[in-house]
């Protein structure tokens, strides 16, 4: 069964653990600025996770002049082949959702590739706002988050 990365905005408490997990999964520093998932913080414990949607007709894949961005048929993600990147940044400009990022370490671009089918951010989310679920569960509406109970003090 195909797996899908499911985001439930209602359950995000903007803790930023997913950003840290991603940064550490792909580098040695916990720098949210280099994380492939970004939380837009809109209030206390209110956040919206924004991450690559692995678009069916991806602008990044279409614009890349060296075919460095290619669909991975197993994970469904658009993978990035670092050896093919020429750092022209057209994909950064082309992504309509702003999910293509710059990787200063390798001086090329980077994007969420669902960690090859085992997204490292998912286990760290305390509320299940991001989840890796079978496709037939992707459309189930999220449960309301009991923020009163979660709040400390």
């Amino acid at each position: 069964m195909k797996m899908i990365y499911k985001v439930s905005v209602e359950r995000c408490i903007a803790c930023g653990k997913c950003e840290l997990a991603c940064a550490f999964a792909h580098g040695t520093e916990g720098k949210p600025a280099v994380s492939r998932i970004n939380i837009t913080r809109r209030g206390p414990e209110l956040g919206t996770p924004v991450v690559c949607y692995q678009c069916d007709t991806a602008a990044c894949e279409a614009i890349c002049p060296t075919q460095a961005l290619v669909r991975n048929p197993e994970t469904g993600a658009i993978d990035m082949d670092r050896g093919r990147c020429i750092s022209c940044r057209m994909c950064v400009a082309a992504c309509p959702f702003g999910n293509m990022l710059w990787d200063e370490t390798y001086h090329c671009v980077q994007k969420c590739d669902l960690c090859g089918g085992d997204p490292q951010c998912v286990p760290f989310c305390p509320t299940g706002a991001i989840a890796w679920v079978p496709a037939d569960m992707a459309a189930i509406p999220p449960e309301a988050l009991d923020r009163e109970t979660l709040a400390v003090g």
């Binding site: 919206t48 924004v50 400009a93 992504c95 702003g98």
Partner: peptide, 27 residues
Amino acid sequence: VPGEYFETSDTTKRREMAKKFVSLQIL
């Protein structure tokens, strides 16, 4: 890929997407 996609930065685009998702919330 329409040229319009290039006109805003990735930071602005993510912010716009975040706003959109909030408006699409079910709960």
